[in-house]
Design a protein around this nucleic acid. Structure first.
Length: 295
DNA sequence: TGCCAGGGCGCCG
DNA sequence: CGGCGCCATGGC
């Protein structure tokens, strides 16, 4: 695979207790802890100093920060790195250039502070259906409970990976579970929303793999689903579809923008990477609020 | 106990 | 359009 954009490099590989691993260096300021602690993924937990483990793309892996600019991916071969984890971790993006672009859009000191604070966060390229479903679950909910529900759905309706872990259930599996089978797992009023989304996919009215066009066009298609509003759709596009200009607005973002930005502020002002800036601002506001332990 | 949690819907003016 | 009550559930 060509690496003309960013100089990440496989600098080691091997097998440890029967589990393959790869070591990557030249990954700049990427931070495993910040990336998996900033509220974009609900399936990873810390299992050691600077190491987060979980399931994505039907595989159990852990990401271990072994130093500045280096990470070991436990549970991945070289081939899986190139085909899955490189994109997932955002190593195909140049975050130095992204940060420069964001800062060039505004001289707001709060934006500079947020970039400094959030620097190292990468926007994960998560699985589309899992992202949509997870952010439907996120509405009027808190992160620990979102994680519990996602784990419960996976254990009950997801494919077993043979090691005690489970893939996130397919739309088909959740359709077959039915609204009551989804409600059973404490999803509450969100059960009908999840089921509606699964049903639309099952019946061919929504194809997440064919969600093409600019961010506004994709947004319009997602919002057709009952239970997906602007915020959930924006989160899906940002974290599951690679739309780095998608700018989800929740209470934290509303708070931080009203505090530091002029009243006529618009997300587009921050350019094509406004979504990355949004994540920095989100992390910045919650971190300074002393609320990071709830993540 | 009451309030909040990475909201959205339906209804009302 | 803009505001508001409601929706399930658990943690504080």
């Amino acid at each position: 695979m060509e690496r003309t954009i960013f100089e990440d490099r496989i600098c080691g590989e091997g097998i440890e207790k029967g589990v393959p691993f790869v070591e990557i260096d030249n990954i700049g300021d990427f931070s495993v802890a910040k990336t998996f602690d900033c509220g974009q993924s609900f399936r990873f937990e810390p299992i050691g100093p600077d190491e987060y483990a979980g399931v994505a793309y039907g595989r159990y892996v852990s990401f271990e920060q072994t130093g500045k600019g280096t990470v070991i991916i436990h549970g991945s071969t070289k081939e899986e790195y190139d085909t899955v984890w490189r994109t997932y971790l955002g190593f195909d993006r140049d975050y130095e250039q992204i940060n420069r672009d964001i800062l060039s859009r505004s001289d707001n000191p709060a934006l500079q502070a947020a970039v400094d604070c959030g620097n190292g966060i990468h926007i994960l390229r998560q699985e589309a259906w899992e992202t949509v479903c997870s952010f439907i679950i996120s509405q009027n909910n808190n992160i620990p409970r979102i994680k519990k529900i996602v784990a419960a759905l996976s254990e009950k309706y997801g494919e077993p990976l043979g090691n005690g872990y489970y893939a996130f259930p397919t739309a088909d599996a959740l359709y077959n579970a039915g609204e009551s089978g989804i409600f059973e797992l404490k999803t509450g009023f969100r059960a009908k929303y999840i089921f509606d989304a699964a049903k639309r996919i099952k019946e061919g009215h929504l194809d997440l793999s064919q969600l093409e066009g600019d961010t506004e066009t994709c947004l319009g298609k997602l919002v057709e689903v009952k239970g997906i509003g602007n915020k959930v759709a924006m989160c899906s596009l940002l974290f599951g579809f690679g739309h780095l200009d998608a700018f989800p607005i929740d209470v934290w973002i509303r708070r931080v923008t009203e505090k530091y930005f002029p009243a006529n502020f618009k997300p587009e002002d921050l350019g094509p990477y406004a979504g990355v800036a949004q994540q920095y601002l989100f992390y910045y506001e919650r971190f300074l609020g002393g609320d990071q332990k709830k993540m």
